[in-house]
Design a protein around this nucleic acid. Sequence first.
DNA 1: CTCCCGATAT
DNA 2: ATATCAGGAG
Length: 218
Amino acid sequence: MLNRTQIREVLDTMEAMYPDAECELTHSNSFELTIAVLLSAQATDALVNKVTPALFDKYKSPEDYLAVPLEELEQDIRRIGLFRSKAKNIQKLCRSLIDDFDGDIPKERDELVKLAGVGRKTANVVTSVAFGRPAIAVDTHVERVSKRLGLCRWKDSVLEVEKALMKKIPEAEWSDTHHRMIFFGRYHCKAQKPACPECPLLYLCREGKKREKKTAAG
DNA sequence: CTCCCGATAT
DNA sequence: ATATCAGGAG
């Protein structure tokens, strides 16, 4: 586990690497963002961004998504994967937006998670990106990076990772750090082929040092 | 815990 | 061929 000084070095290094890291899901309002994040479960942002332009052109309101048969919406998002459950969740989400939330995406996480297909991670993204609330959404990248660097314990659940990060990172830096960790994980500390040899954080990374030994021996 | 699931990288 | 991708529901 990293100490205070090391955590500061991690935050500063990531800021230097990705000073302008931000949400890469294309969207023009909180409703589109929520749909995009829901669709991005177990899919890459790049793929979601290929599908959403036509999708957002066709469906502009909750009513629009409810006006077509489920099968039609399924076909419109099929390429993203998990399309049956996602299509069903989108229509359920739109129904409850109209019935329970006056047609608007709620701003609080506790309200957001009541929507179908919206769990804690998606709610954190929406409340943070769309409404500027401080939050750390722990996705696959944030979890992997946090565990490799030692910002949390290896055995931590996703919620425990989030709590560890919120405790160790100043609240004012939550949202920026969150996006920088996404970029760091997506483009540098990748799941399959991490760039350890050229990593500025290798000196304090348990996992990176292990990998260095491995490649040196093998 | 399992299931959902196509696209892409390795 | 297999792993992974801005997870969530049952």
